[in-house]
Amino acid sequence: MNIFRFSGDMTHLMSVLVLLLKIHTIKSCAGISLKTQELYALVFLARYLDIVTNFISLYNTIMKLIFLGSSFMIVWYIRRHRIVRRSYDKEHDTFRHLFLVLPCFILALLINERSAFKEIMWTFSLYLEAVAILPQLVLLQRTKNIDNLTGQYVFFLGAYRALYICNWIYRYFTEPHYVHWITWISGLVQTLLYADFFYYYFNSWKNNVKLQLPA
């Protein structure tokens, strides 16, 4: 495992921890899109179907369990927790799941590396992960005051994607036959979705003003 891949996993982990920290300690999910969190739970469920049958390393298995567990825990907090659910911004979080899930599933049926069930689900998870952040970005745009933890959550997620691209470039040059078009293109699309956010995030940081995305 190279440094980019490891740093990418760690920033991914950081994003989840920042979100759980916000929800658990402040007991608030203000500015967090439940739609995006539910899509991530579905992404991990579809991708880690091989968790018991395909052992790669203890590191992989533990990380998979963390991402699966945390994504369902976050959804539970927002939907069910007595206090947390009151801060959920239902009026502004209106993105429809099906608009993202259905096209991704159809695309996975049409474009995949092998048409086995687990392979299609894995491909579906890649496509869905690429667009799962959209409801969150839309919600951020509609939110007047983005708090620091929410901003950091999205920043860490974007950093994770950028580092994975560095990881693929590194692996392409160091490993023979390492070519994965589906992974790369969906990963690139996903990272580009953060470009706009990053622009405003760094500007607010540089000018020391509160983060706000233009409508």
């Binding site: 991914h12 991402f67 590396e113």
Partner: peptide
Amino acid sequence: LNSGQLHDEL
């Protein structure tokens, strides 16, 4: 294509 290689990322 080695499927183990394909699935070693998270």
